[in-house]
Design a protein around this nucleic acid. Structure first.
Lengths: 120, 120
DNA sequence: GTGTTACTTAAGCCCTGACTTAACTATTGG
DNA sequence: CCAATAGTTAAGTCAGGGCTTAAGTAACAC
C-alpha cells in the first residue's frame, strides 16, 4: 500500500472511519481546534489528535499551532483523486453498458429482421 | 462502526484496499470468476475470495455460482452513498466559501467606503 | 510562580485486516 | 471411474488501527 499523502489508499482509508468523517464535516464549516473536534465525539484528546494527524497525513487537513492550541482546517481540493477515480469507474461502467446495448440492439434487429419495420 | 452493506463505513473501507479497487476496475468491464480476478494480482485464491466476499458484503458486487466457478459482477449503482457524501461535503465547503466571500466584500466595501464608487 | 488549559508522548490492549499453507468438497472432461 | 480444476474452510501469522491511562511539556491567567 502506498501511504504517501493524496493517494487513493490514504484518502479512502482516511475516509473509512466515521470519526474522521465527522471531523471533516465539522471542518467543512470552518477551522477548529483539536479539543473542538474531540468534544462532540466522546473521546479522549490523544485519540482525537491521532485522527487529526491521520487526516493531515492524507492531505485532507492542514494544522497550525497557535499558542497552545492546534487549529485544523480543511483542504477541500484534496478530495480530487477520490472523485476522479469514481468518475473513471462510472465511465468504464457506462462504456460497457453502451457496448452491451449495441449488442442487444443488434440481437433484436437480427431477430426481427424483415419481420416488421419498427420505429420505437 | 456500522457494518451493514451500503453504509459509508463499509463502502469506504471496501474501497480503501488497492487489491479491491483493482478488482472493481476489472469488473467495470464485465463479470469475472474469482480466478480471473486473482490471476493478475499474484495472490492465492483464498485471499482473492476474501476480497470478493468483502466487496459483496459492501454491496458493490454480486456473485453467483455457475457449476464450480463463482462469477462476480459489479453493482455500480451502489457507489451512490459515497458520491452523495462527497457532494454534500463540497456543498458545505462552498457554502462556507460564499459566506467568507460576502464577508470579504463587506470588509472591502467598508474600507473603501466613500473613497470611490466602484463598478466591477 | 502557580495552577489551569491544551496538547503531546509513551505504553499497552484488543480487535481486525491481509495474507499464507494445508486439507477438504464439488464439478467436469477423458 | 479418475484426475485435474475451481472454489471453500480452517488455522495461524503478522502488522496496523482505534482506543485507553499516565505522565509529560508549553502557553496562559492570575
Amino acid at each position: 500500500m502506498d501511504l504517501s499523502p493524496g493517494t487513493l489508499d490514504t484518502l479512502f482509508q482516511a475516509l473509512a472511519d466515521p470519526t474522521r468523517r465527522t471531523m471533516l464535516e465539522r471542518l467543512a464549516k470552518g477551522p477548529a481546534s483539536v479539543s473542538d473536534l474531540a468534544a462532540p465525539l466522546e473521546m479522549t484528546l490523544p485519540a482525537a489528535l491521532d485522527h487529526v494527524r491521520r487526516l493531515e497525513a492524507a492531505g485532507l487537513v492542514a494544522t497550525e499551532k497557535q499558542g497552545r492550541v492546534r487549529i485544523a482546517r480543511l483542504v477541500a481540493a484534496r478530495y480530487a483523486p477520490v472523485t476522479t477515480w469514481l468518475d473513471a469507474q462510472r465511465a468504464m461502467w457506462e462504456a460497457r453498458l453502451d457496448r452491451f446495448e449495441r449488442f442487444a440492439v443488434r440481437q433484436r434487429d437480427a431477430n426481427t429482421e424483415s419481420k416488421d419495420t419498427r420505429d420505437d
